[in-house]
Computed example of a mutant assay.
Amino acid sequence: MKKIMLFALLSLCIYKARQDFGPKPILPPLYNEPYVAVYGRDSCGHTQRLLKGLKQQGIEPHYLNVDDMNIANSLHARMELQKIPTQRYDLPVVDVNASLEIRPTLASVQEQFLAQ
């Protein structure tokens, strides 16, 4: 009986790990050219610092305010496709050429954008 329970537990762990760490579905890009889309709020200091830093580095981001319910719903749909929880998350959420990241550093956004 212990072997059966151990096998069931191990199978469940492997299944869960594949869901969490397996390949993420590919998102459709928001734009036809390479882009950085920053989802955030006007009142969010992290969002505003990232936007300012990107502009200083010569990267013109697309800013999408999540206080607009249509934008928030679109973001949540994209997050769910990438298996990112939407119940509670930090801002900004950044989409670099159809790859989402929550509260990334300026350096990681630059690196990802310039790698394209």
Rank of each mutant, 00 (worst) to 15 (best):
I84T: 07
I84Q: 04
P85W: 00
P85T: 01
P85L: 03
P85Q: 02
T86L: 06
Q87W: 12
Q87H: 10
Q87I: 05
R88M: 10
R88Q: 07
R88Y: 14
R88T: 12
R88A: 14
R88E: 15
Y89C: 01
Y89T: 01
Y89M: 01
Y89P: 00
D90Y: 14
D90W: 11
D90F: 15
D90Q: 11
D90T: 13
D90G: 11
L91Q: 01
L91R: 03
P92R: 00
P92S: 08
P92Q: 01
P92I: 00
V93L: 08
V93H: 01
V93R: 00
V94A: 05
V94D: 01
V94Y: 05
D95N: 04
D95T: 07
D95Q: 08
V96H: 01
V96K: 02
V96R: 02
N97Y: 06
N97S: 09
N97M: 02
N97V: 07
A98R: 03
A98W: 03
A98V: 00
A98L: 00
S99K: 10
S99Y: 05
S99I: 12
S99F: 11
S99M: 11
S99H: 13
S99R: 13
S99L: 07
S99T: 14
S99P: 08
S99W: 09
L100D: 03
L100R: 01
E101A: 12
E101K: 06
E101Q: 15
E101L: 07
E101M: 12
I102K: 00
I102V: 12
I102T: 09
I102F: 09
I102Y: 09
R103L: 06
R103I: 07
R103Q: 13
R103P: 04
P104F: 15
P104C: 14
P104G: 07
P104D: 15
P104T: 14
P104Y: 10
T105I: 10
L106K: 03
L106W: 03
L106C: 05
L106H: 07
L106Q: 11
A107R: 15
A107S: 11
A107N: 14
A107T: 15
A107D: 15
A107L: 11
A107Y: 12
A107I: 12
S108R: 05
S108A: 09
S108N: 07
V109R: 01
V109A: 06
V109F: 02
Q110F: 09
Q110W: 05
Q110D: 07
E111G: 15
E111C: 08
E111A: 13
E111M: 08
E111R: 07
Q112K: 13
Q112C: 11
Q112E: 13
Q112S: 12
F113L: 05
L114W: 08
L114F: 06
L114R: 09
A115I: 09
A115N: 13
A115H: 08
A115E: 15
A115M: 10
